[in-house]
C-alpha cells in the first residue's frame, strides 16, 4: 500500500498577484503616474463620477482611463467622447482586475506623458477587494439607493479603500438611507478612510473630492 505523505507548501494564493502589483507600483513611480483604482457595485456611478471628477481637475494634468467593462465598450466610448484617452480592458468575463491585467492594459498608454490614470474596475463589491491592482490609492463608490447596510455585507471592500465616495446624494430625500449609521459602520471598519458625499449627476460635492485627488496626485508627482 502506498503511504500518504505530507508535503509542506505554505504558499499564498495571492503571492503572484502581490508581486506583480509591487512591480507595477515601482514602474508607476518611475513614470510618475498616479494610479487610482475605482470600485463599486454595477451602476453606482463609476463612469459618471470619473467624467465629473475630471472636469474639476487642473487643466494641466494629463489623464487616462482604463475601463474594465465585462462585455461592452459602452463606458470606454463615453470616456473617449469626452476627449480623454481610454483603454478598454478585455476582462474575459472576469469579476475583477488583477495587477497583471492592469499592467498589460497600461502598456497601451504613454505612461511617461500621463500624470493620472483611473481604473474603472469591474462592478462588484466582492472580488475586486481581494486583488491588489498595483494602484497608488483605492477608492470606492457607495450610492445611496444601495442602502446603508453595505459596510456590513462587504466589509473587506470598505477595509481596503483609502477613499469612500457616497454618491447619488440627490436620492437622500427619497430614501431611508441613514448617513450617520452608515458612516459609523465604515469608520469602525476603517478609521482612516476619507469620505466625500457627492452627486455625480448634479456635480454637488465633486469639487471637494477632486481637490483632494489633485493634492494626492501633486504630492505623488513631487515625491
Amino acid at each position: 500500500m502506498d503511504e500518504v505523505r505530507l508535503i509542506e507548501v505554505k504558499q499564498d494564493i495571492h503571492a503572484d498577484n502581490e508581486r506583480a502589483a509591487e512591480e507595477l507600483r515601482a514602474r508607476l513611480a518611475d513614470t510618475k503616474t498616479f494610479l487610482l483604482n475605482l470600485m463599486s457595485s454595477p451602476g453606482a456611478g463609476k463612469t459618471t463620477t470619473i467624467l465629473k471628477t475630471l472636469e474639476q481637475m487642473p487643466e494641466s494634468l494629463e489623464v487616462g482611463v482604463l475601463e474594465a467593462d465585462i462585455d461592452s465598450m459602452v463606458d470606454a466610448e463615453r470616456i473617449a467622447s469626452a476627449g480623454i484617452s481610454a483603454i478598454q480592458l478585455r476582462t474575459g468575463g472576469f469579476c475583477h482586475l488583477d495587477a497583471a491585467m492592469v499592467s498589460k492594459g497600461l502598456d497601451a498608454l504613454d505612461l511617461d506623458a500621463l500624470d493620472l490614470v483611473i481604473i474603472e474596475n469591474v462592478g462588484n463589491l466582492v472580488c475586486p477587494a481581494e486583488f491588489d491592482t498595483g494602484a497608488v490609492r483605492n477608492a470606492m463608490i457607495l450610492s445611496v439607493p444601495e442602502g446603508d447596510d453595505k459596510p456590513l455585507k462587504y466589509p473587506l471592500m470598505f477595509t481596503v479603500c483609502d477613499v469612500l465616495l457616497v454618491n447619488k446624494i440627490d436620492y437622500m430625500e427619497l430614501s431611508d438611507f441613514d448617513m450617520g449609521v452608515m458612516l459609523e459602520r465604515v469608520e469602525r471598519l476603517n478609521p482612516e478612510i476619507e469620505i466625500f458625499e457627492i452627486s455625480a449627476k448634479t456635480g454637488w460635492g465633486v469639487k471637494e473630492w477632486a481637490a483632494w485627488l489633485s493634492r494626492e496626485v501633486a504630492g505623488f508627482i513631487a515625491d
Binding site: D2, E3, V4, I7, V9, K10, E130, T159, R188, P191
Partner: peptide, 20 residues
C-alpha cells in the same frame, strides 16, 4: 473601546498537500 484595526482574517494560503 472600538478603536481597532484588522490584524488578520485575509489569509489565502495553500498550507500543505497529502500525496501518495
Amino acid at each position: 473601546e472600538n478603536d481597532c484595526r484588522l490584524i488578520s482574517g485575509r489569509e489565502y494560503l495553500v498550507k500543505n498537500i497529502e500525496v501518495i
